[in-house]
Simulated scan of single mutants.
Amino acid sequence: MTEQGLYDIIDPRFAHKIVGSAQLEELHTGCRWAEGPVWFSDHDALYFSDIPNQRVLRYLPSDNSVSVYTEPSNFANGHTRDRQGRLISCEHGPRRVTRTEIDGTITVLADRFEGKRLNSPNDVVVKSDGSIWFTDPSYGILSDYEGYRAEPEQPVHGVYRIDGRSGEVRLMVGDFVQPNGLAFSPDESVLYVADSGASHNPDAPRHIRAFAVEDGGMALRDAGPFAVIDNGIPDGFRVDTDGWVWCSAADGVQVFDDTGTLCGRIFVPQTVSNLTFGGPRRNRLFITATTSLYALYVTARGVQTP
Results as ranks from 00 to 15, higher is better:
Ser41Ala: 15
Pro37Ala: 02
Asn122Cys: 05
Met218Cys: 09
Glu114Phe: 01
Asp258Lys: 13
Cys31Arg: 03
Ile266Phe: 00
Glu168Asn: 12
Phe113Thr: 10
Thr70His: 12
Arg238Ala: 13
Leu142Met: 13
Val253His: 00
Cys90Ala: 11
Val298Glu: 02
Val97Met: 05
Asp251Tyr: 01
Arg96Asp: 05
Glu214Ser: 11
Gly147Lys: 01
Gly147Phe: 05
Arg117Ser: 13
Ser273Thr: 15
Asp195Cys: 10
Leu109Asp: 11
Asp129Tyr: 10
Arg55Pro: 04
Ser199Asn: 14
Val228Tyr: 12
Tyr294Leu: 09
Val303Tyr: 01
Gly181Lys: 03
Gly147Leu: 02
Asp222Asn: 15
Tyr59Arg: 00
His157Trp: 09
Gln23Pro: 00
Arg149Gly: 06
Val239Trp: 00
Asp136Met: 04
Ser73Met: 05
Ala198Trp: 04
Leu87Lys: 01
Gly78Thr: 10
Gly232Gln: 10
Val66Tyr: 09
Ser120Gly: 12
Val56Ala: 04
Val239Met: 06
Val56Thr: 10
Gly302Phe: 05
Ala198Tyr: 04
Ala34Ser: 15
Ser41Arg: 12
Trp133Phe: 14
Leu182Ala: 03
Ala210Lys: 02
Arg284Leu: 11
His200Asp: 13
Gly279Ile: 05
Glu71Phe: 12
Phe75Gly: 06
Ile229Thr: 11
Ala194Ser: 14
Arg32Trp: 06
Gly140Arg: 11
Asp129Gly: 13
Val19Ala: 11
Val124Ala: 07
Arg99Ser: 07
Val173Phe: 10
Pro186Asp: 02
Thr276His: 05
His200Arg: 14
Met218Glu: 15
Glu71Asp: 10
Phe277Ala: 01
Arg95Thr: 05
Asp11Trp: 06
Phe256Ile: 01
Ser65Gly: 04
His92Glu: 08
His43Thr: 03
Arg86Ser: 12
Thr241Phe: 03
Tyr47Asn: 02
Asn53Asp: 14
Trp133Cys: 06
Val253Asp: 00
Leu60Arg: 15
Gly252Leu: 03
Pro186Asn: 01
Asp11Gln: 05
Asp136Ala: 04
Ser89Asn: 04
Gly78Tyr: 08
Glu71Val: 06
Gly197Arg: 08
Val68Trp: 07
Phe184Val: 04
Asp63Pro: 10
Pro94Tyr: 02
Leu275Thr: 02
